[in-house]
Design a protein around this nucleic acid. Structure first.
Lengths: 328, 328
DNA sequence: TTGTACGCGTTATCAC
DNA sequence: GTGATAACGCGTACAA
């Protein structure tokens, strides 16, 4: 028995005879042999683990995706290098650097994490590494993006508020700069909101636009700001559920009833949205679909041999879920 | 300049002259040199990443801990190998095997994950690897455990329900077998519940004990079971918040009002517990404390040189947070 | 179909 | 203080 033969068996080479394969396998089981991933990675110049950077691990929408990935990868014997970028570019860049040092086999970006420039550099230096971005659009060759049509969704939910006869509709956006300013922050969701107002012949009141940070506290602060104006809004579309819940807290604290005095709508449909006080109207993200497609895409691209895998760009749509927070 | 000297500088050896150190550093910055973690791990027989197995990534209490760990470790330049064991022993064992293959530097167990036996084997084969278990007690030398006094907490919350003049108090426990059956499932929380009833001179009704699985769906099912009895409980202590929320859903579906018809109390005080309908009475876990201690402990043990680090066993206590779900 | 020998990038040992 | 060199465990080109 030789080292090379064992290696061949372990890596499933085709040229080993069935007989020796069995004998090797038996020995492996008996001795409890396990390949050393570090040595393997050193030799192959390509690790076995997948790097994942998520912009906010406390956001249930994101954890659901990570959980799905974790399970799919386990079936391939792969593990996840997990990093939380805390909604900050500097941290995301740092995280990416650490992942590069660990020689990951592939990269998954969940939410708005690394800068376009940083990712471009990564792709250039690691042409064989699949990159999948979820909920963030990159204009980089070789990067797959799984997106949700935020503009259309924002239009839908704003339209819904208009139909409910709310007349002074505000929006809590993502941050103006930094993560969130790209895909689903100001750009798309704000545009959808603006277009819906325009189509209904409503004016866009600058005082009705507040900036949040995709977190509970950010929604709370933004709502306080909106309420401090003389002309109070009677409906608020928050760009995600965490901020919507923060907004509800702020409204209640100001002695306002939701939805009688002010309606609130969110985005994501996190599991808790259905059981808050009051239950939250929100745009439901196609979570399971997103997770499944990402996992399938990743494993396919990882097992792909050849110089370059084919990137995918796919847009899903969010679905309006009407609950009590937007119906007087 | 020689390879060995550079290595010495990178690893902060004391014997390099300040002058060469500066020169090496300058070259490192200029060339953008980054040590290859795989080669390093291969040589040292000890990786740079920390393995984390969490029993349920969708449980906000757990993600908070993971998030904290992620950030603390980033400061040391370390990454996390994350695995979700999905509340299943087989998966946890598999995860542990994968982590071993990846040659982790340390291990953190969040929630009820790997079996005592599996962990014992790990510790035997990796005496230098720190192991920290959060919310699960192991009787293994060298394993640090950060615990919460579940028995006392369960006593407190049950006592609270008694004080609120509820008379038929039920419990939704963790699973009877598998993860959850150990620390905080049947054992401690059930015992605290039983002792509180006994101290108050109440009988322990077997029909008032339902088994859950620490998930929303499990709480829902357990509640349905409790409600299907002729003698309905008028208060339910669920062993965690996810199950409590499931129980609320089931109660509402059965046409019962919470807390007028049936009171519900949970355990964890996840962020959403404060904003559910109605806001949830629950035992607040010392999250930030737990996270901070775990992180501090881990980094200390990781940087510890010598044959054996000193394990720590620490018990925190949960705090009763009374909200509307338990007050008519 | 099998075995040999080399190199992946690092750290540890020891001679200088 | 510094530099040469042997491992670490594996994949693979190439010889057999």
């Amino acid at each position: 028995m030789s080292i090379a033969t064992v290696s061949a068996v372990v890596n499933g080479a085709t040229w080993v005879s069935d007989d020796t394969r069995r004998r090797v396998q038996k020995a492996i089981d008996k001795l409890g042999y396990r390949p050393n991933q570090m040595a393997r990675g050193l030799r192959t110049r390509r690790g076995h683990a997948v790097g994942v950077i998520v912009s906010d691990l406390t956001n249930p929408f994101f954890t659901e995706i990570v959980r799905g990935l974790s399970h799919t990868l386990r079936e391939t014997g792969r593990t996840i290098f997990l990093c939380d970028s805390d909604h900050r570019f500097e941290l995301a860049d740092l995280n990416l650097r650490m992942l590069v040092d660990s020689h990951i086999a592939g990269l998954v970006l969940v939410g708005d994490t690394v800068r376009e420039e940083a990712l471009r550099a990564y792709v250039r230096r690691h042409p064989r590494s699949p990159v999948i971005a979820i909920e963030r659009e990159y204009d980089i060759e070789g990067v797959s993006c799984l997106l949700v049509d935020s503009e259309a969704g924002a239009y839908t939910v704003t339209r819904h508020l208009i139909d409910q006869e709310y007349s002074r509709i505000a929006i809590i956006t993502g941050p103006h700069e930094g993560p969130g300013s790209t895909t689903y922050g100001r750009a798309a969701r704000y545009n959808g909101y603006a277009r819906a107002l325009a189509d209904a012949g409503r004016a866009l009141e600058p005082a009705f636009v507040a900036e949040g940070n995709f977190r509970h506290a950010g929604g709370y602060e933004a709502m306080r700001q909106l309420l401090s104006n003389g002309n109070r809004p009677d409906a608020v579309f928050a760009s995600n559920d965490l901020m919507a819940l923060g907004a509800i807290d702020a409204a209640r604290e100001a002695g306002l009833r939701v939805p009688q005095d002010v309606a609130i709508a969110g985005w994501d449909d996190v599991p808790f949205a259905a059981i808050t006080t009051p239950p939250l109207t929100t745009m439901a993200m196609p979570k399971s679909e997103l997770g499944a497609v990402a996992a399938e895409l990743l494993t396919r691209q990882l097992s792909h041999v050849g110089p370059r895998h084919t990137p995918v760009r796919k847009t899903f749509s969010a679905r309006l879920v009407v609950r009590q927070s937007s119906c007087r």
